[in-house]
């Protein structure tokens, strides 16, 4: 059986939507949850620190053949923030660098999460993008008016608003915006 590590932003609990959404999607697709181990990196910058304890653990498991494939799921953020790791292209470039530095090239892939239309934002932006324009605008207007910052609070607020507004079903996984992520997750289990 293929053994998989999924590396995501946010915490290992459901404080942000990251792990919750990925697990829900995996369940929806019918992938073997028991073959997956999740690594929560907290903030995005942690992905780019080669000494992160998650990487030390993963390397050990990889060398012992306990992990076969790895998927990084990382937010794009907004390029306007003008930081090294912000924006789709910067994120892509830096992820390629860290995967190379870790020696994971042969078995690691990444998926940058954002609003698929604008190529900006976070995993929460992908969730909002799967809503109808009317519903999405409501939440986006609220966020805009409240001038919420920084990013982690922003992500948490979107997640909370979304969870309250649309508890059942929580995510619109039928939307085409999720197809690419579904494909990446499915690809993890192909030999």
């Amino acid at each position: 059986m293929v053994k998989v590590a999924i590396l995501h932003e946010g915490s290992s609990n459901d404080k942000t939507a990251d792990k919750k959404l990925i697990r829900s999607l995996i369940e929806k697709i019918g992938l073997p949850e028991s073959s997956i181990v999740y690594y929560a990196f907290g903030s995005k910058t942690e992905f780019f620190k080669i000494t992160n304890p998650n990487y030390i653990e993963i390397k050990g498991y990889v060398e012992a053949d306990e992990i076969d494939k790895i998927l990084f799921i990382v937010d794009a953020d907004h390029e306007k923030d003008d930081a090294k790791y912000k924006g789709y292209e910067n994120t892509e470039k830096e992820l390629k660098n860290i995967i190379d530095e870790l020696g994971f090239n042969d078995f690691a892939r990444f998926y940058i999460v954002c609003d698929p239309v604008t190529k900006t934002g976070y995993l929460e932006s992908l969730i909002l993008a799967s809503l109808s324009a009317e519903k999405r605008n409501c939440i986006e207007h609220f966020i805009e008016c409240s001038e919420i910052n920084p990013k982690q609070i922003h992500k948490t607020i979107i997640n909370n608003l979304y969870t309250i507004a649309y508890p059942d079903p929580p995510y619109n996984f039928e939307h085409a915006h999720f197809d690419e992520l579904k494909a990446e997750l499915t690809n993890l289990f192909t030999i």
């Binding site: 304890p53 653990e57 498991y61 012992a64």
Partner: peptide, 27 residues
């Protein structure tokens, strides 16, 4: 044991062990 049935180690120092247990890694 790896796929070739050779014994390998996964070594965790203090920081890695605490992080691993906090995240309930069950490899």
């Amino acid at each position: 044991k790896n796929k070739q049935e050779k014994i390998k180690t996964i070594a965790m120092n203090y920081e890695v062990l605490l992080n691993s247990l906090a995240q309930e890694h069950e490899v």
